[in-house]
């Protein structure tokens, strides 16, 4: 249950993370609470979503890229 598929598309878990960020959650703890995913899954998922180009990290805050915004 990673957050992206082998071809780089968000999985159901990945979409939950993207949706939580779209709702304004910017740090892993808040994204975890909003998405219902365990904190360790959010942290590992954010790395995958950054690598796939859906999320970016600015300072300590996570935001969506244009590609991420298109997903939700």
């Amino acid at each position: 249950m990673p957050c992206t598929t082998p071809d780089g598309k968000p999985t159901a878990s990945g979409r939950k993370v993207i949706l939580a960020i779209k709702q304004g959650k910017e740090i892993p703890e808040d994204i975890s609470a909003a998405s219902g995913l365990p904190l360790f899954r959010v942290r590992s998922g954010l790395r995958e979503l950054i690598q796939a180009g859906y999320v970016k990290l600015e300072g300590e805050k996570y935001t969506l890229t244009p590609k991420g915004l298109e997903e939700v």
Binding site: F40, R41, R43
Partner: peptide
Amino acid sequence: TTQGKIRLEDFKGS
């Protein structure tokens, strides 16, 4: 792992 690539540091705080 069966839930993707995981680092020990992902569990920090738990």
